[in-house]
Computed example of a mutant assay.
Amino acid sequence: MKKTLLLFLIFFPIISCGSSDEEKPTSNENMYFPPLTGDIWESKTISNMNWNPTAVQPLLDYLELKHSKGFIILVNGKIILENYFNGHLATTNWYWASAGKTLTSTVTGIAEQEGFLNINNKVSNYLGTGWTSLPLAKENLITNKNLLTMTSGIEDIANGDCVTPDCLTYSADAGTRWAYHNVYVKLQDVIAKATGQTYSNYFNTKLRDKIGMNGSWFVLDNNSVYASTTRSMARFGLLMLNKGKWNSEQIVNENYFNAATTTSQSINLSYGYLWWLNGKSSYHLPQSQLQLPGSIIPSAPNDMFMALGKNDQKIYVVPSKKMVVIRMGDAADNVNLALSDFDETLWQKINALYQ
Rank of each mutant, 00 (worst) to 15 (best):
residue 277 L to N: 04
residue 276 W to H: 04
residue 320 S to V: 09
residue 296 I to V: 05
residue 276 W to A: 00
residue 334 N to R: 12
residue 301 P to S: 01
residue 325 V to Q: 00
residue 301 P to Y: 00
residue 303 D to C: 08
residue 294 G to R: 04
residue 252 V to C: 05
residue 263 T to C: 10
residue 302 N to Q: 14
residue 332 A to D: 06
residue 304 M to F: 04
residue 295 S to N: 13
residue 269 L to T: 07
residue 280 K to L: 13
residue 298 P to M: 14
residue 330 D to G: 08
residue 287 Q to H: 15
residue 250 Q to W: 12
residue 255 N to K: 14
residue 275 W to R: 02
residue 342 F to K: 02
residue 341 D to M: 06
residue 335 V to M: 15
residue 331 A to P: 05
residue 294 G to V: 07
residue 301 P to C: 00
residue 269 L to N: 07
residue 253 N to E: 07
residue 280 K to D: 11
residue 247 N to I: 14
residue 299 S to L: 11
residue 329 G to V: 14
residue 308 L to W: 00
residue 252 V to Y: 03
residue 337 L to V: 15
residue 302 N to F: 08
residue 330 D to V: 10
residue 331 A to R: 01
residue 306 M to Q: 10
residue 242 N to R: 03
residue 283 Y to H: 13
residue 300 A to V: 04
residue 254 E to T: 08
residue 258 N to R: 13
residue 273 Y to P: 11
residue 256 Y to H: 09
residue 320 S to F: 06
residue 332 A to P: 07
residue 268 N to K: 03
residue 339 L to M: 15
residue 310 K to W: 13
residue 294 G to Q: 05
residue 330 D to N: 13
residue 285 L to W: 07
residue 290 L to C: 09
residue 275 W to Y: 09
residue 258 N to K: 11
residue 300 A to S: 10
residue 274 L to I: 04
residue 345 T to Y: 13
residue 350 I to F: 01
